[in-house]
Amino acid sequence: MNMMVQGTSVVGTVPSALPLDQIGPWNSARQMLVCSNVIDEAPDVKTFTFVVEGGGWFSYMPGQFITVELRAKGGDLHRTYTVSSSPSRPYSLSITIKAQINSIGTRWMFDNVKPGSRIRAYGPSGHFTLARNPGNKYLFISAGSGITPMMSMLRWLADCAPGTDVVFLNSARRPEDIIFREELELFAKRMPNLSLGFLPEARSAANPWAGLMGRIDRHKLAMLAPDFMSRELFCCGPDPFMKAVSSIVRAEGFDMGHYHQESFGATSIAESVHKQAQDVATKGKATGLTVSFLGSGEEKVCEPGQTILETARAANVRIPAACESGICGTCKVLKRSGEVEMRHNGGISDQEINAGFVLACCSRPTSAVEIEA
């Protein structure tokens, strides 16, 4: 006999199907996620599906991401993963991740997260979504696991607006590395205005291929999306791939106000954050200023150029952080008093700033500061 646990799905249980108005949305500050399923999608690619522990539903925009906390052997890790599921199906949430050769966090998830596993997560966050940048017709162009936010947006369109005009392009190393290929081909049969284009870089004996091949260029883009100049364009993938796409469309005179790309902790941003720290230190700001961490009762003098996050670590105060570049929003904390200089990269909204929140990774005190941490 199956045990019934309201709102959760673990090994040997069946989730409750209460209406949304009878249960609350997931609160990442106090509710854990429970893994309900793990699926192999492609070589070294898995989808992990979660439900809310104790019951709940997920409120997010297609294309956003969450940050997961992993209790690895060497200490807690925080990793940012795009949600691949659609908010039109709010009882569960999925992330689809690829383990690279030097992956630590992702390999830990592959080895340790099974149905029934409990995971702490934060979010959702992010501005890479068609909800914030609507268009009459779309071009989703991705490489490798950069397909995940595109899949979230396409799944939402398939459920809520299946007649939408979408060109969906994905580059991969080999045909078998194309993530979600079968589901995308099924969508193409059910969405009359969906056009698919796959670009593997190499052939494979395991999976014959007769279509276009090679890296994205102006010629291939024009073949697969002849009217790309008039589309709302979303791009996600490795940094060299996104640079190539942006260079191609920019050279054609594309209105870059309709170009959107997703990047977590890109090198250029990390370098910019480091330069900001040097500039602040040079100006002598933050010298001898005290940061009080109200939740833990600790105080620490902030060294010149140091961020609140760096000061917290020096005081052994734990503030979750992932990208450390002002992008993901994981290190968001409430500032009770004092002033800071914050130079973020989209990881916090104006409403949150007005409410007193700051990102610890990119905020440097300009006076004594009190923080809820």
Rank of each mutant, 00 (worst) to 15 (best):
P192R: 09
I348H: 04
I119T: 04
V280W: 10
G265V: 08
L157K: 05
P175W: 13
T164S: 12
A360Q: 05
M213P: 10
V68M: 15
L93Q: 01
F264K: 10
S292Y: 05
E53D: 11
P208W: 12
S247Q: 13
V10W: 07
L334Q: 13
D279Y: 06
A266M: 09
G74S: 11
R118H: 13
K243E: 15
E341I: 08
A188R: 14
R215Q: 14
R218I: 12
R173C: 08
D111Y: 00
F241D: 08
Q278F: 07
E182N: 14
K189S: 15
G284W: 08
C328I: 07
N354I: 07
V166H: 01
K243F: 02
F241C: 11
E201S: 15
A368R: 05
I308R: 02
A143M: 09
G54S: 05
E183F: 12
L130C: 08
H219A: 15
R250Y: 06
L196Q: 11
A322E: 04
K300G: 02
E370M: 06
T82H: 02
L199F: 13
D165R: 07
Y259P: 02
R173Q: 14
D76R: 08
Q31C: 05
A225V: 10
S171A: 15
I179F: 04
H344R: 01
N27H: 13
T148R: 06
P15G: 08
L20D: 09
R107L: 04
V358F: 10
A360H: 03
G338D: 06
S85E: 06
M4R: 10
S85Q: 09
K300E: 15
G163P: 04
V38F: 06
R181F: 11
G214K: 13
C323Q: 08
N136E: 15
V5S: 10
G305R: 02
G24F: 02
G214W: 12
L93Y: 03
S103W: 06
L184E: 06
T47A: 10
G7Q: 03
V301P: 01
V68C: 11
T49W: 07
T129W: 04
H260F: 14
E41N: 06
K46G: 02
K243Q: 13
A188W: 03
P175I: 14
V83N: 05
G126R: 03
I327V: 15
M191C: 13
Q31L: 10
N136M: 07
V14W: 01
I23R: 12
L199M: 15
D177T: 07
L309D: 05
V301Q: 11
V34A: 07
A172E: 07
P226Q: 14
G338V: 07
G346Y: 02
F65L: 00
L309M: 11
Y259C: 10
V52Y: 06
Q6W: 02
T47V: 03
S325D: 02
F65V: 00
I95R: 02
